[in-house]
Simulated assay, not measured.
Amino acid sequence: MAAESGSGAGLGVGAVARRLGVAASTLRTWDRRYGIGPSGRSAGGHRRYTADDLARLEAMQRLIVSGAPPAEAARAALDAPPAGPASPRGHGAGGNRIPLDATPAARSGPHAARVRGLARAAMALDERAMTTTVHAALDREGVVAAWELLFVPVLVGIGRKHAASGAHVEVEHLLSAVLLSALTERARPRGTGGRSVPPVLLACAPEEQHCLPVYALAAALAEAGTAATVLGARVPVPALTAAIDRTGPPAAFVWSQTSETGDPSWLAGLPTGRPPLRTVIGGPGWADRIPPRVRLVTTLSWAVAELQAVTPRR
C-alpha cells in the first residue's frame, strides 16, 4: 500500500473493504454511526484511509468477531493508541491492535482484575488457572457476558502481543483450547422434557477454520434453552444441505471470518422447509450481495435473539 502512513493519502473505501473482507456499505455505516472512518485526503480531496485508520478498523473488526457490540468495539478501537502499519490478518486472535485494557470493562470496574488474572494465567501457560477462571466466569455471569467482558479482551490482548512480536502463538492456542473445551461442555444437549424440538444448525462456511465463535453461540443458545447442533469447521455446502434435509431445523447459522470463505452466493440454494428455514450468517468474511431473507448479525447476543425467535424453547 503505497501511501499507508499516518499522514499519507491511503486507500479508498473499496480497497479497504476488500482488504478487511467486509462490505463497503459496512465501512460507511461504521463511519456514520461510530466515527471510525477515513482521516486522510487524496491529492484531489477525496477521503482516504490511512494506516492508523486501517489498524483501528482491524481492531474493531476483531472485537465484533469475538462478540462485542459494534458501538463498544468502535470506542475501544478509537481509544487505542496508533499501532503503525497494519499486518495481514492471521489465525485466531493474532493481528489485532487492542491492548488488554482497551475495552471499558477491562480498564475499570469489577471485570478489570479478572481480565488481568486470565491474561496472566494465559501468558504463563497455566492451563489449570485458565480453566478455573473461565468456568467461574461462565457460572457467575453467563456465556454472553463472560464472552464479551472477559474472554474477548484477553484474546485480543494476546493478539496484539502476537502482532507486535510474532510470538505467543502457543498462548493463543492454549487459551483457545481451554475456551473451546468449556464452551463445548456448556453446549451439550440437555433434557427436552419429553418434547422433541428440532435443533438449529451451526456451521462454519466451506474452508473456514475459525470455529470458536460458533461454539460460543452454541453455549449461549443452550443457556437460553435453545437446542443446537454444531457441525464445526469447514462444512461443505452439500454436507450442510444434507443436514438441513435430514433434521428439518427451524434455522441455520453459518460463520465466515475471512474474505476467502465469505462468498454468499450459495446461501440462496439452501433447502427451504415448512415453516421456512431462517438462514442467519455472522462474521466479517461475508461479501456484498447477501441473498434476500438471509440475516447478517454482528454480535453474539443478536445471533442468539435471531435464532431463538424461530425456535421453541425446551
Rank of each mutant, 00 (worst) to 15 (best):
V171M: 01
T50E: 05
L277E: 08
D245K: 14
A106Q: 04
G166N: 05
P249G: 10
G159F: 08
L63E: 07
A268F: 01
A216K: 01
E260C: 05
G94Q: 13
E207F: 04
C204H: 02
E207M: 07
V197G: 05
R140V: 04
R47S: 08
G92I: 02
L183I: 07
A23N: 04
G232Q: 08
E223H: 11
T247A: 14
P85T: 10
E223Q: 14
S108P: 05
E148W: 00
G37L: 03
R120D: 13
A136W: 05
G37I: 04
L240I: 12
L270D: 06
D52V: 00
I64R: 11
Q61I: 09
L57M: 07
P104K: 00
S87F: 09
A55R: 07
H210I: 13
G232W: 04
G8I: 02
M60A: 15
G273Q: 11
S301L: 10
L240P: 05
Y49C: 08
P110M: 04
A145E: 14
L57Y: 04
A71P: 00
A93I: 00
S196E: 14
V169H: 13
P104W: 01
G191S: 15
L240S: 12
E207N: 12
H111E: 14
A3M: 11
V22N: 03
A51K: 02
G273P: 07
R33Y: 00
V178P: 02
A93L: 07
E72S: 09
S265D: 12
H210F: 05
C204K: 03
A24Q: 10
S256G: 12
A228G: 09
W302M: 11
A251L: 07
R47A: 10
Y215V: 09
R97F: 09
A303N: 10
P198T: 11
G6A: 13
G194H: 09
A137D: 03
S66E: 15
P69A: 13
A136T: 14
P110L: 09
L202F: 13
L149K: 13
S265H: 12
T229R: 13
P88C: 10
Q308S: 15
R274H: 13
A220W: 04
E207R: 13
D79T: 04
P236T: 10
G191P: 02
G12R: 03
R293A: 14
L150G: 04
R97E: 11
R32K: 14
A59K: 00
E172I: 02
S176D: 10
P81C: 03
P292N: 10
D139G: 12
G159H: 07
V200R: 01
G45A: 04
H46K: 03
R62S: 14
A224Q: 15
G225A: 07
E207S: 15
R186G: 06
V237W: 15
G92F: 11
R295F: 01
